[in-house]
């Protein structure tokens, strides 16, 4: 028997974005919106955090959506149904504190739409009016728009290059929408750090409180190492146990951006190493075939 957590289903959602349903019954039962898992693909693997996008508690499965960002996620992209992930631990982090916000705007950039989906669902089923803005660089990179359309009262889509929806950034769309008198009481943003930073500024201008779901580098995910330190309102917080969501108006996004670049050189090296391994494998493959 293979060790680990069985991948039940694998689908490519967009260029470099993969969807998985993974057997993890204990996590499926416990997970709440906002929480994530940490996984390790194999014995030499790194521990990486991924949001649980949806669960099927009856079947004992969790849904993950992964964008290829570096070595681990690239390797993960080669995994498919029937493969096993060696370790999956969770659900980690705090669940989204859903409130009676009234009218809520949720904003997802890129693969950030994935972590945003369960939050939007939870807010909606709590009785809030939920509008959404989903953006990506280009049409082929948009994900989950149909599911958002189903969950939300109103959805606006934008792309940087204008290939679908409004041409521009999610923060621009947000600004326009507020300007049209949308009257949002609360906003939640998930996506790349610069995008969340831009959204924070717009929310601030319209005096709308809100949350950002942060993606610092993590190791254990249980509060043991402090790798996930972020600064919020001038205080150090451990995102894995006190987050990952924080007051969007308190987050030091500049620090988060820089800290996420801690290993830029090493990440590059890791990917090169992976490609070198692939190349060797391919050569050996050709040799054995010949």
């Amino acid at each position: 028997m293979e060790q680990g957590y069985l991948i039940h289903l694998h689908r490519k959602l967009a260029d470099r974005i993969h969807e998985y349903w993974v057997d993890a019954p204990l996590i499926a039962k416990k997970h709440r919106a906002g929480q994530f898992v940490i996984l390790r693909l194999h014995e030499h693997g790194e521990r990486i955090p991924l949001t649980v996008v949806e669960t099927d508690p009856e079947q004992g499965r969790i849904r993950l959506i992964v964008q290829v960002a570096g070595k681990t996620t690239e390797e993960f992209g080669d995994y498919t149904a029937g493969d096993h992930i060696l370790d999956v631990v969770g659900p980690l982090g705090l669940q989204t504190h859903v409130d009676d916000w009234g009218k809520l705007i949720v904003i997802g950039g890129g693969v950030g739409a994935a972590p945003l989906l369960p939050i939007a669902k939870a807010a909606k089923s709590h009785g809030n009016t939920v509008n959404a803005i989903i953006g990506a660089r280009s049409k082929e990179l948009l994900i989950l728009t149909e599911e958002f359309a189903e969950v939300c009262d109103e959805l606006r889509i934008c792309t940087d290059d204008g290939t679908e929806g409004t041409k521009g950034f999610v923060s621009d769309v947000l600004d326009q929408w507020c300007d049209q008198g949308a009257g949002y009481k609360f906003g939640i943003a998930v996506g790349p750090v610069p995008m969340m930073n831009a959204v924070a500024k717009v929310l601030k201008r319209w005096e709308i409180p809100g949350l950002a779901s942060l993606n610092p580098i993590m190791v254990d995910g249980t509060g043991m190492c402090g790798a996930c330190r972020v600064t919020v309102h001038g205080e150090t917080r451990f995102a894995c146990v006190e987050g990952p969501e924080f007051d969007i108006h308190g987050v030091d996004f500049h620090e988060l951006t820089l800290r996420n670049r801690s290993y830029t050189e090493e990440e590059h090296e890791a990917v090169e190493h992976l490609h070198a391994c692939h190349l060797t494998q391919a050569i050996n493959h050709v040799r054995t075939e010949a």
């Binding site: 030499h44 693997g45 190791v219 090493e266 890791a270």
Partner: peptide, 20 residues
């Protein structure tokens, strides 16, 4: 964090191990 990266995750053997 420092010790975990090395003792638990093999960062001293990077890039054979993925953790830097």
């Amino acid at each position: 964090e420092f010790l975990t990266r090395i003792n638990l995750l093999g960062a001293d053997k990077f890039p054979d191990f993925d953790t830097p």
